[in-house]
């Protein structure tokens, strides 16, 4: 069966989707990715969809699911490289992908992930001595 490879890079997982997704492929990716987050204790997931020309409601939902699932496994997700035509279509379709972090390209996505994780680490260090709770 087809599978989309998941690469590990330090604290992050990298997924580059190079083919147009069909439903089962997207579902397999969702399952694989959540497993990998657990297995590698990844702090961030970066999904590059620059080669994806079609995102319909099902795949949009899978992307949203991956972000929410990773989140409750203590990992942030950033989707990068969305084509303008795909963004237009998603909004017209009625799928604003709320709750999914996005960045224009891989580099910015990586920086966003790093900053999100750094913020989190800083909070830990700063908040703990006071004993105050973060929001």
């Amino acid at each position: 069966m087809d599978r989309i490879p998941i690469l590990r890079m330090g604290n992050f997982l990298l997924v580059t989707i190079q083919v147009d997704l069909y439903d089962r492929l997207a579902l397999t990716l969702e399952a694989d990715l959540v497993q990998m987050v657990k297995k590698t204790s990844a702090k961030g997931v970066l999904i590059d969809i620059s080669a994806v020309t079609i995102v319909d409601s099902f795949m949009g939902r899978i992307i949203g699911n991956i972000a929410s699932m990773s989140k409750i496994l203590d990992s942030e997700t950033v989707v990068v490289g969305m084509q303008p035509a795909v963004a237009i279509t998603l909004i017209e379709l009625g799928l604003p992908l709320k709750g999914v972090h996005t960045a224009l390209d891989v580099e910015r996505g990586m920086n966003l992930l790093k900053s999100m994780i750094d913020d989190f680490d800083d909070e830990d260090i700063e908040e703990d001595p006071d004993g105050s709770l973060a929001e």
Binding site: T53, I54, V55, D56, S57, A85, V86, T89, E92, L93
Partner: peptide
């Protein structure tokens, strides 16, 4: 155009599903 192509194929994808 590319945007209309994307709209059309996305619409088709929904209906196919």
């Amino acid at each position: 155009g590319l945007v209309n192509q994307t709209r059309l194929i996305t619409a088709a994808s929904e209906l196919l599903r």
